[in-house]
């Protein structure tokens, strides 16, 4: 009994020590933003280009923001779940969304889901990459034009793997189909990884994706790049024409940006935008983004906000036309 009592007292003493130390920890409420870590929500799965870019950029956050940025993955519904979460979060700058064209423009414009420029405001754009259309190298066509001929000769035979409804692969494919009048099966996969796996395994014939994921397979000869959906050719694929060169007027620039809940005070937005600008100029970040095969294309809050709004409105029109 005596021994037990001693033990208990020891515990109590230990507790008091911990309490004392804990009490000294800085808990004061400061006026200055940010006083605690900022959460950046990525509404899509791990390992994608958004995830990689966000992690590269935020890795140096503490040097320029004074607080770390915690990257949190909230995938689901093609980005809708994470976007809705951020739109509902307190507009204090502590919860941000890593925006992408798919869930921040297309989904709200076409389907009325997820959250667009009506519910979120722009902090800044980091960069963008174009969609690249690829096919299995066993397919009997080598260019976009030949693919279109093949699809016309064999209606409903081609299987196209998209990376989620209205995503980086789905939207441009729907545009190509609409413009050229071909017919093919369009199968939904939950992200770029599974769609790529399906094409490599021969369960689908074509997919669209970003260069960082596709390049190793294009180099190894398993996949053949048919077209780049940009206004200019891709630096690392100088031989692959743009869709416009091949006579199909489709471009799809997947941008990556930082967005905040609507109502976030302007000084906080400015502070964040400045910190992100400095982060994207950090040498280590620049070299990491370079290794991903991308470059920094920073755009400030006002300029990007305008670009985003225009894209959103034009996709709204497009959605109405495509759904017919």
């Amino acid at each position: 009994m005596n021994k037990r009592f001693c033990l208990t007292m020891m515990w109590v003493g230990l507790l008091m020590c911990i309490c004392a130390v804990g009490g000294m920890a800085p808990t004061a409420v400061a006026e200055e933003f940010p006083t605690k870590p900022v959460t950046l929500i990525i509404p899509v799965g791990a390992g994608g280009s958004h995830d990689l870019t966000a992690r590269a950029v935020t890795s140096v956050a503490i040097n320029y923001l004074g607080q770390p940025i915690i990257v949190q993955l909230k995938p689901g519904g093609g980005g809708a779940i994470g976007s809705e979460l951020v739109a509902k979060a307190a507009p204090d700058g502590y919860t941000l969304l890593f925006g992408g064209m798919g869930w921040s423009s297309t989904l709200p414009a076409v389907e009325g889901r997820s959250k667009g420029p009506d519910d979120l405001i722009a902090v800044c754009r980091i960069n963008y990459s174009p969609t690249i259309i690829v096919a299995r190298s066993e397919m009997p066509f080598k260019t976009l034009k030949e693919m279109l001929q093949y699809a016309k000769a064999n209606p409903e035979k081609l299987i196209y793997a998209n990376t989620g409804p209205w995503g980086q692969a789905d939207l441009p494919w729907k545009m190509i189909v609409k413009q050229t009048g071909i017919s093919a099966k369009n199968v939904p996969y939950d992200g770029g990884g599974p769609a790529l796996l399906a094409v490599l395994g021969g369960h689908a014939d074509m997919t669209g994706g970003l260069i960082s994921a596709l390049l190793p397979h294009i180099k190894s000869g398993k996949l053949r790049a048919l077209a780049v959906l940009d206004d200019k050719r891709e630096k690392e694929l100088p031989d692959v024409p743009t869709a416009k060169e091949e006579g199909v007027n489709v471009a799809n620039l997947m941008w990556r940006s930082v967005l905040a809940p609507k109502g976030t005070p302007r000084p906080v937005i400015d502070k964040l935008a400045l910190a992100f600008k400095k982060m994207t100029e950090d040498k280590s970040v620049v070299s990491m983004i370079d290794k991903l095969g991308d470059e920094i294309q920073y755009m400030g809050p006002d300029e990007f906000g305008k670009f985003w709004r225009e894209e959103f409105e034009s996709q709204k029109e497009l959605g109405k036309a495509l759904k017919k």
Partner: peptide, 17 residues
């Protein structure tokens, strides 16, 4: 009283702090 008090405080310190 002793157990519930110490459990509450310890768990708070361990998880929160």
């Amino acid at each position: 009283v002793l157990v519930s008090l110490s459990l509450t405080v310890i768990s708070y310190l361990v998880f929160d702090r």
